[in-house]
């Protein structure tokens, strides 16, 4: 356990090096919120309705704000690409020679990255949420807050597991990088990041519900938005747990099988 603690600490300090970069990036991330607010205002006005896809206007704006929080947990920038590159370039041997589990190492690394991100992004996030407070629902009860936190942690694990499985495809395919791009595009849509999935026609919703992506973003966001009753939230969390187990298992299998194919020469 101690070695993972060391990995964690190193990752923390590495992340604190490029601070200016970080603040620019965090700021840019909020630009789309402005256009989102304006676009949906125009859509609600044009439609002359108070509800679109089961959401009132203020809930729609809050949806996009909460999606950013959920994505902050679930997104794993470059994880799949880095893994595929490690495999292709043979850098993987560096980890194989160390008494450390590669997947555990990456999970620790990502945990540290997220922690730094939450600490540093707390101020800009708080500012944006304060400015948009008129759109936000009432402060949730302690119970719902607890369920939200659990759901967010599970979103992090689902995000990690999905990206790991994709990255490990590098054992079998040389050009995973471009495939990852297709995957990211599909995920943007299927996870409800682009727009709430309740806007989709019913038939498409049924299909999208069968995939893990909705449980990585859409449903945790609905919990934060307090659109789900506590028992529905618990059901979502249960399905999230199943997906975490299935995907982590898939990652373990892919790792074990891939290693048998893997060959690195020299040093």
């Amino acid at each position: 356990m101690r070695k993972y603690w060391v990995v964690f600490k190193v990752a923390l300090s590495e992340r604190l090096v490029y601070r200016t970069d970080f603040f620019i990036a965090t700021f840019l991330r909020f630009i789309p919120i402005i256009t989102t607010i304006l676009l949906w205002r125009a859509i609600y006005d044009g439609a002359n309705r108070t509800e679109v896809g089961g959401l009132a206007y203020s809930q729609m704006v809050a949806y996009y704000l909460f999606v950013m929080i959920v994505r902050a947990f679930g997104s794993m920038p470059r994880l799949a690409t880095d893994m595929a590159t490690d495999i292709r370039d043979g850098d993987l041997r560096k980890y194989l020679l160390q008494p450390i589990n590669y997947l555990g190492y990456n999970l620790t690394l990502r945990g540290a990255h997220k922690l730094v991100y939450f600490v540093m992004a707390a101020v800009p996030y708080a500012l944006v949420f304060y400015l948009c407070r008129g759109y936000l629902p009432e402060w949730p009860s302690a119970g719902m807050l607890g369920l939200s936190m659990i759901s967010l942690v599970l979103a992090f694990l689902i995000g990690f597991a999905i990206n790991t499985v994709i990255g490990l495809l590098g054992f079998w395919f040389l050009e995973v990088a471009s495939f990852i791009h297709v995957f990211m595009t599909a995920q943007y849509f299927l996870s409800g990041h682009m727009f709430p999935l309740s806007l989709l026609p019913e038939s498409m919703q049924t299909v999208v519900d069968l995939l893990p992506f909705a449980y990585e973003t859409y449903y945790p966001t609905l919990i934060l938005l307090q659109r789900l009753e506590p028992d529905e939230a618990v059901r979502v969390i249960a399905v999230q747990c199943v997906w975490v187990l299935v995907l982590l298992l898939a990652a373990r299998v892919a790792w074990a099988r891939g290693l048998r194919r893997y060959a690195a020469y020299g040093g």
């Binding site: 970069d21 970080f22 620019i24 990036a25 840019l28 991330r29 630009i31 789309p32 902050a72 997104s75 920038p77 470059r78 690409t81 990255h113 991100y117 992004a121 990852i180 791009h181 990211m184 595009t185 995920q187 943007y188 990041h193």
Partner: peptide, 18 residues
Amino acid sequence: DMLWFYAVSRKPGGTCVN
């Protein structure tokens, strides 16, 4: 790339940081 993906192209950027 952040400026590009978030402000102009509005595509899901594969390379953004966090």
